[in-house]
Design a binder for these strands. Structure first.
Lengths: 221, 221
DNA sequence: ACCTGAACACCGTTCAAGT
DNA sequence: ACCTGAACACCGTTCAAGT
């Protein structure tokens, strides 16, 4: 209620800033879900009018994009590289995945962002570098990088959003008529068991195939 | 304005139905983008009050889910199977991809649907069947099926939604400082060139790896 | 049985006005 | 320089009332 006593002039030296708003976004999304992140809700959280946000961000899209980029920094700063390409790609990809699964709705908005966010470039630079050092032709290296990026971002967003492939789905598939759906009913008990296991299975499929590509390329030279 | 002259009693024998509403959804989304699909817009399109939709669908989610399922029917009914597992999976996957890329926002809503839609089960049954017939242990077959499904749905939605990886991105990556971003700047001209090529590259990586899995399993037996 | 229309409780965003 | 507050043009959804 009362201003901090060190500051004589006004009641709040700098109530709002981009970082304060981004923090509030993450806090609200964590507590009440991403659809609760509303200009009015954001204002209430910070004891400020909803429209004050527009002093710091052009619109809501810019705010959400900045929030998503912050998630990426936090994730990426906590990864360390060993020099083993396969281990390094795995840990980079899995760290990004964790951030996206935890905040899928926020992550989703990066996809529709008109330009890449600063930390996105850092992560891409690191991953692309690891793959290029394998010695593949640049065209294959770029495609491999792009596909790993797309797989990670897209599937993790989906996993985070979703009821897709939960217990409810398994039950519904189990209840289908076995004569017209023999394969789904036969395997219903093991379907959609663990999104993380599925993700890593697919990741390893692609890494296996990339490794073979590298070997074949080395043999030709 | 005037009723069809064959019908004496009222001015419209059956103005609304689930199918009529689904058709209108697709029509509006195609013409004006998926964010234009609004209850009020839908009512205007059909010369009916916005709230009349609630006579046929519980809420907007149910309407959109039904619309997404219709896209899947149209796509799946146009695929034919040859018996060559790799060709058949490729064509099933690419057909689904085309439907999702064309209507990403609608497709996105299926992901948050609480239960699988009827046609989704048909497509899954067919794809899972093809993979199971390869003779892998069921656990691997199920994971391979799930990963192909997730990759197709998620990446195609993302590609359809977006500016992600367009010309603008390539330009921004090219403009980065080369000393801190040597790999991105070196390959900027070939980055994010063609989403379809990237998708097929990743698909073939996974199919290659699955083929190897099958070979190794056959050798052990 | 099916549709209407007013109403409710929300959105993001603008712009003149305050301090 | 930064924030306020009224206002605008929208949403999805409910429910009593019409036919």
């Amino acid at each position: 209620m009362t201003p901090p006593r060190s500051s004589p002039q006004a009641r709040s030296p700098a109530r709002l800033s981009r970082d304060v708003l981004i923090d509030a976004c993450i806090r609200i999304a964590d507590r009440e879900g991403p659809e609760a992140v509303t200009m009015r809700r954001l204002g209430a959280e910070l004891g400020v009018d909803a429209t004050a946000v527009y002093r710091h961000f052009r619109d809501k899209d810019e705010l959400v994009a900045a929030t998503a980029d912050r998630l990426l920094t936090d994730a990426f700063d906590s990864t360390t590289f060993t020099g083993d390409w396969r281990r390094d790609i795995r840990s980079a990809v899995l760290t990004v995945r964790r951030a996206y699964v935890a905040h899928p709705r926020i992550a989703l908005m990066v996809l529709s962002a008109t330009s890449p966010m600063p930390n996105e470039a850092r992560v891409s630079e690191a991953t692309l570098g690891i793959i290029r050092r394998l010695g593949l032709p640049d065209r294959d290296a770029v495609l491999a990088f792009e596909v790993l990026e797309a797989y990670t971002v897209a599937v993790s967003c989906m996993d985070g959003m979703g009821s897709s492939g939960s217990d409810a789905w398994r039950l519904e598939y189990a209840a289908l008529p076995p004569t017209t759906f023999p394969n789904l009913t036969a395997t219903a008990t093991m379907l959609y068991a663990d999104p993380d296991e599925r993700f890593e299975f697919g990741l390893d499929l692609m890494l296996d195939a990339i490794e073979r590509l590298v070997d074949r390329h080395a043999d030709e030279a």
